[in-house]
Simulated scan of single mutants.
Amino acid sequence: MNKKVLFPVLTVAIIAACFIPVTQQKSTLVKSPFLIIYSVLSNPFKWEQLAPGLKKVAVADSAKVSIENANASFRIKYPGIQINVQMKSGGFFVDEDINGQKASYSYILIPVADKFYNKTTVVSEEKTSAINYLIENIWPSASPGKHLALLKNFMENDSLHYGFKIFATGVPESNLIVMRKEVSKEKRFMEAAGMLTVLKQFVKDNNVKQMYPVIAQYLPKGKDSTQVNVGLYIDKEVSSGKEIIFTRMPKGGPLYAARFKGPFNKRNQAYLALRQYFMDHAYQTAIMPFETYFNDKLPVGDTDSVDMQVNFSTYPNDQPR
């Protein structure tokens, strides 16, 4: 063959070969238990938060997001976006099209057999071009790859996974004075404010010091009543009064908490996040959850804006590992 003809033919062949699809495998260690990662990847609603390009539209235009479930698979659709997930052979196989950017990849989960089984090796296979595969092998990157990095970040970041930053803390003080009343639902805010006023007067009258912001519980009792409990941490033991009970909590007792800022009637979002966190980690609650109100500002109504912390207590064995 004429050299002048052969050279461009070889050039075209080499260029074409560079774009031949090949499969590239990467792995990363995720600090999250196998079952939790599996539950996230098998839940299409979690993919709305996990998938690039889908989270923003799911929040801003959720009515246009559709989910089609089938046997061991699901499909998420939005104008310009489609994600197909199949669960087979112990893995998750994904085909996605995000505004014309197509990708095919998979996740295989391998539990790490350490003492706590709270880590998982995730192996991902992704289709790529031969040229990208060669470049990666010649100059390997420390990055686990886009999709693995997204999953790792999502699973290791509570504010992404649960919607709140969940943190371990403890009971700040053992000495506590408490008032408890069952009141009508309509009067729960007014009654709580009055109870706080009485507690603060008790502190003055007994020459003790309030140590931390007010804590409270608003517990539904039937259809029309609420059990309202309001308490103050104080610096020393006192005798109980007629309506005020002195009690003790284990100082430093383990708590997991989430801070919430917004309308009082939306605070259940923090409760749901903490309940899911406890379920995921097989933690048990020791006492009923309670709320810390910063600046001693209790709500005056359902839509009143609050700055608070929701606290879930647990047992010493359920400490972070």
Rank of each mutant, 00 (worst) to 15 (best):
Q86N: 11
A113C: 02
K88P: 01
H147I: 07
Q86Y: 15
I131L: 14
S143W: 04
K152Y: 01
V123T: 02
E126T: 13
D97Y: 07
T120A: 00
F92N: 03
P144K: 05
K88F: 14
N132A: 10
V112W: 02
N99G: 13
I83V: 12
G145V: 08
W139E: 11
H147P: 06
S143C: 02
D97P: 11
K119W: 08
Q101I: 11
Y78I: 09
S141P: 08
L148Y: 03
T121Y: 15
T120G: 03
E125H: 10
T121Q: 13
D97N: 15
S124N: 09
K88M: 10
G100H: 08
L151R: 00
I138Q: 07
V123Q: 04
K115R: 07
L151V: 01
I135A: 11
K152Q: 06
E96M: 09
F92Q: 03
Y133T: 03
N99Q: 14
I98P: 09
E125T: 13
A103S: 15
H147L: 12
D114W: 02
E96G: 07
N99F: 15
V123R: 06
K115A: 11
M87K: 12
A142K: 10
K119C: 03
N118Y: 05
I98T: 07
A149I: 04
I108A: 07
L150S: 03
V112M: 01
G91I: 02
Y78S: 09
V123C: 00
L134V: 10
E96T: 10
E126S: 12
K146Q: 14
D114Y: 06
S104T: 15
L150N: 06
V94R: 11
L109Q: 08
Q82W: 01
V123D: 01
Q82P: 01
L134W: 12
K146V: 12
S104H: 14
Y107S: 00
L134F: 11
K119H: 07
P111Y: 12
K119P: 04
Y107L: 00
I110S: 01
I138Y: 12
H147W: 14
N132H: 13
F93K: 02
I131A: 12
N84T: 08
G100S: 09
P140N: 05
T120I: 06
K146F: 15
I108K: 14
Y105S: 01
F116V: 03
L134N: 04
D97T: 14
A130H: 04
K127E: 10
I81R: 10
S129K: 00
Y117K: 14
I131N: 06
D114R: 02
N99S: 10
K127I: 14
I108S: 10
P144H: 04
G145D: 07
Q82E: 15
A103R: 13
T121G: 01
E126P: 05
V94L: 08
V85I: 15
Y117D: 06
Q101M: 12
V94T: 10
K146S: 10
Y78T: 05
I131K: 08
L109E: 07
I110D: 01
F92T: 03
V123K: 03
S89T: 13
G80C: 09
A149Y: 08
G80I: 10
K77L: 12
S106Y: 14
P140H: 07
V122A: 03
N84C: 00
